[in-house]
Write a protein that binds this DNA or RNA. Structure first.
Lengths: 199, 199
DNA sequence: CTCTGGATAGAGCGGTCGTTCTAGAACTCT
DNA sequence: AGAGTTCTAGAACGACCGCTCTATCCAGAG
């Protein structure tokens, strides 16, 4: 058998992390088995534990970091799409809706998918969640500050925007309907407009 | 009829549903075992499958229905606390924050906790999610209409409020900090005020 | 009393879980 | 060429999974 000459899709380690991320997104932490990860990645159990000696938690933590970058890029693209922060935030919601719809409501945010079953029982993973959320919130807050919103207000509004985006994604997945995310786009936009006009 | 020996806490069937709800909230669907449910409920596996012959999914569906009622009551209490819809919605967020904090960030919304791992793979449970969300949204929308908000706007704003509450709860659980929910209280209030003033 | 049927009790089924372990293949360095 | 390292390969382990099954218990009906 072929040995280590990296199969299609990059080196083994990368394929394992990618497969982990994809599976965790769709079926959560407890619902995903290490053997299934190996199978999907086209690797063997031996390889998995060779690259990730700390096991499933390390695997999940790395997948979370990788996925976090994807969302950071999505937010960056959405936020850049308009000079108006209200429109920019709405664009982010629409990008999330597009992505979710394309995957038949399967691929949601990895943070949300893993958080609710592992919260409080894995310090390693906990840190990756917090880092991801902090980065995303700061991205949004920075955009809000560009229209002169006070730093404190921008930070808090960004927190609420993030909450609404995460929640709307959950609602959209449950009902197999992008309405929640599209609606959030509109009303978060209105919220930002309102905050701008009365400081 | 009726399990006659009924230990402390009501009849066996009720205890099983309660234990299921409590465990699902804390560790999700896949992370919760039927034997653990039986143990926590002070029942035996035989009793569990006697009352819930369709197994774990039926168990989860019933727990979801029970939990949904609790949230409906919480929303009702919050919404009744003020004539001003903006203040009423904020009160709901604070009630959620209080409840979450009391349980050391463990007891969140059962819908969110189970949705992300079972979405698209259990029609029975899917229906309970949708019914819960629809009921909660309508509760909030009804309150918004009391200040003359158009029905369509009220419905959409209620959807966004619900998204933000669910999302803020997730964020609060992750960071073991009620700031997200308290912030959502303030900014959802501002959103409603803004919607009222420009229709 | 016996009979009945809901409820309780838990051993046991086949299967999967995360993980460990040994063996060997492929490549580098000397 | 030989030694050493890295990576692949998958059998095997004990624990636990959801679920089935038989046996027993017990209140009320006759």
């Amino acid at each position: 058998m072929g040995g280590r000459t990296a199969r299609a899709g990059g080196d083994t380690r990368t394929r394992i992390v990618d497969a982990t991320a994809a599976l965790l997104r769709r079926q959560g932490y407890e619902g995903t088995g290490v053997k299934q990860i190996a199978r999907d990645a086209g690797a063997t159990l031996g390889s998995v534990y060779h690259f990730f000696p700390e096991g499933k938690e390390q695997l999940a933590a790395e997948a979370l970091r990788r996925d976090s970058e994807h969302y950071t890029e999505l937010l960056r693209d959405g936020l850049r799409s308009s000079d108006d922060p209200a429109e920019a935030v709405a664009a982010c919601a629409h990008l999330l809706a597009d992505r979710l719809k394309e995957s038949d409501w399967l691929d949601g945010c990895l943070v949300a998918a893993t958080a609710l079953e592992k919260v409080g029982r894995s310090p390693v993973i906990q840190r990756t969640w917090e880092e991801s959320l902090a980065a995303w919130q700061e991205q949004i807050a920075a955009k809000l500050r560009t229209c002169g919103m006070p730093a404190r207000t921008a930070e808090e509004a960004a927190c609420t925007v993030l909450s609404a985006l995460e929640g709307a994604e959950v609602l959209s997945r449950i009902s197999s309907d992008d309405a929640s995310l599209r609606t959030a786009a509109v009303y978060l936009g209105r919220l930002i407009v309102a905050l701008r006009s009365d400081g």
